[in-house]
């Protein structure tokens, strides 16, 4: 069997994404602890995260609905494997909880971390609320995580 040759190539690369009008408004709201969903005037769905277009009705959306920063846990998991955090390049240590949260006033769920990482203490249908960071920059991690309201 021939010897394996490993070629290592390292390259640093960044992409500059335009947020788009919908995400821009959402981001501005986060800075002020405000969450807004964008609503379809035909089907009435209030979308989170916001997007410019309703894929069900095929129309542009531009009306906004205030949404509470608390809601219901509709799915959850506790990750037991550390993950590479794309924002820092560092590993996020396990375990950590991840949830799909249906905020009061929205019709689609938001993905976010859960403060609770003990599976025995998590259940679908639990009420959860956002824990905000003190310093906010208009990004998803302005919310540290969601905690169970007990």
């Amino acid at each position: 069997m021939s010897e394996t040759v490993t070629v290592t190539i390292e390259m640093e690369q960044a992409w500059r994404y335009a947020s788009g009008t919908a995400m821009e408004r959402f981001s501005e709201g986060l800075k002020e602890r405000r969450i807004e969903a964008v609503s379809c005037r035909l089907c009435g769905r209030a979308y989170l995260p916001p997007r410019p277009y309703c894929g069900k009705c095929n129309i542009r959306m531009s009306s906004w609905t205030p949404v509470k920063d608390e809601g219901e846990l509709v799915a959850w998991t506790v990750m037991q494997l550390p993950m590479l955090d794309g924002r820092t390049g560092e590993m996020r240590e396990a375990p950590y909880g991840m949830g799909l949260i249906l905020l009061d006033g929205a019709d689609t769920t938001l993905n976010h971390y859960l403060a609770e990482s003990d599976p025995a203490k998590l259940a679908i249908g639990q009420r959860v609320r956002a824990v905000w960071c003190n310093e906010r920059r208009g990004a998803m991690d302005d919310i540290l995580h969601f905690e169970v309201i007990r």
Binding site: Y17, A18, G20, T21, M23, P52, Y53
Partner: peptide, 11 residues
């Protein structure tokens, strides 16, 4: 350089 997102351009 289009200031919009890809989604908005495609739309």
């Amino acid at each position: 350089e289009d200031p919009r997102s890809i989604v908005e351009m495609v739309l």
